[in-house]
Amino acid sequence: MYRFVLTPRWLAAAALTVAAAVVMVFLGNWQLHRYHERSAINARIDAADSATPRPLTSVLDRPVSPGTAGPAPGADLAWTKVTVTGRYDPAHEIQARGRTVDGEVGFEILTPLVLGDGTAVLVDRGWIPPAPGGAIAAPTVPPAPAGQVTVVGQVHRSESRPTPVEHRDGRLDTRRIAVPRLAAQLPYPVYGAYVLLTGQTPAADSAFARIPVDHEDAWQNGGYAVQWWLFAVMAVFAFVWQARKEARGETNGAPQPTDRVAEADRQRADQGGDRVAEADRQRAGRGGDRVDGYDRERAASAADRPE
C-alpha cells in the first residue's frame, strides 16, 4: 500500500519535511540557549541586591590611555555589584537625553568619578525630568558632592547602537550611553563600563530617581523554543497523515492507486462477463438455428410421404 512513497514526488516531499523539521529543531535549540542566557542575567540582577559589593578595580580591567576606554567587561560581569571611591568631575558631566522612567521622558546624568590613580569611571547618578518647555529641554542638575565620594552600584555595559556625542551650552549631550565614545571626550583613561548608582556616601540628592533595572523576558524565549519544536513534530505528522490518506485513496476525492487497481479489476471482470455472455448467446444462436433446420427438414419429409 505504501510503495507510492518511493516515487520521486513523495521522496522530494519527505526530504523537504525532514529539512524543515531539522531547521525548526535548531531554531528551538537557539531559543533555548537565549532562555538560559537571559535567565542567567536575571539571576545576576537578583543576586546583586543582596551581594557584598566588590572593589571596582577587581572587576574591570584598568584603562591605560587618556581619552580612551578600557576593555569592555564580558556579559558574565554585567550587573555585578561594585564599590569605588574618588572625586566627581562635574566639569565633564554628560547628559543622556530621551530616557524613560515610569513612562516619563527625561535625562540620565553621568558624572566622571576620578580615582586616586588618575583613572575615572562614569557614574550614572540617576534620572531627572526635563525643564519646562519640552522633553529635551536641558534640566537643572543637582550639583555633584564635593570632596571624596564612595559609590555603590552595578556594572552596566555600553549600550548598543551608539549615537554621536554633542556639545550643547557647555555640556556633553548624547542619546545612547556608549562608553568608548564618551571616553574620547574626557582627559583621562576611563573604565570600559559605567556604574549604575544604587548607593552613595555622602547621600545622593533626592531629586534623582533611581534607574530601574529591568529583567530580561526569558520566558518568551522558552515559549518560542517549545513552539519551534512543536512545529517540527507537526511537519512530520503532516507528512505521515498525508501518506496514510493517500494509501487509503482519500486525497482530494480523486481516484488513488488502490481505487485504480479496484477499478481495473472490476473492468476486467465486467469484460470477462460480457465475453462469456456473448459466447453463450452465440452458442445458443447456433443451436437454435440447427434445431429450426432439423424441424424444417422433418416437416418436408412428412409432406413427401404418401398417405
Rank of each mutant, 00 (worst) to 15 (best):
M1V: 11
W10H: 13
L11T: 09
T17R: 06
V18G: 07
A21C: 05
A21Y: 02
L27G: 03
W30P: 05
H33I: 09
R34Q: 12
H36F: 10
E37K: 12
R38L: 09
S39G: 12
N42D: 15
A43H: 12
I45Y: 02
A51D: 04
P55E: 05
V64A: 13
T68G: 06
T68L: 11
G70S: 10
P73H: 10
G74E: 09
A75G: 15
D76S: 14
W79N: 12
T80D: 02
T83D: 06
T83S: 11
T85W: 00
R87V: 08
Y88F: 14
D89R: 15
P90W: 05
A91I: 00
H92S: 12
R99D: 04
T100L: 15
T100E: 14
E104Q: 09
F107E: 02
E108F: 04
L110I: 03
P112F: 01
P112M: 00
L113I: 05
L113S: 02
G118S: 09
G118W: 00
A120G: 07
V121Y: 00
P129Y: 03
A131P: 04
P139A: 10
P142I: 11
G147D: 06
Q148M: 06
T150Q: 11
V151S: 00
V152L: 07
G153R: 03
G153H: 01
H156N: 08
S158V: 05
S158R: 05
S160H: 12
P164V: 07
H167R: 11
G170L: 04
G170Q: 06
R171H: 15
L172T: 04
R175Q: 09
A178I: 00
V179Y: 02
R181I: 02
A184I: 04
Y188H: 10
V190N: 01
V190Q: 03
Y191N: 06
Y194I: 01
T198S: 15
T198N: 06
G199R: 14
A207W: 01
F208T: 14
A209T: 12
A209D: 15
R210Q: 15
I211F: 01
D214K: 11
H215P: 06
W219K: 07
W219L: 09
W219N: 08
Y224D: 08
Y224Q: 05
W228A: 10
A235W: 03
F237D: 12
A238H: 11
V240G: 09
W241P: 04
W241N: 10
Q242I: 05
N252L: 08
G253C: 08
A254M: 14
P255E: 06
E263I: 00
A269T: 07
R275T: 06
V276D: 13
E278T: 14
A284I: 03
G288Y: 02
D292Q: 14
Y294K: 12
R296S: 14
R298W: 02
R298K: 14
P306A: 13
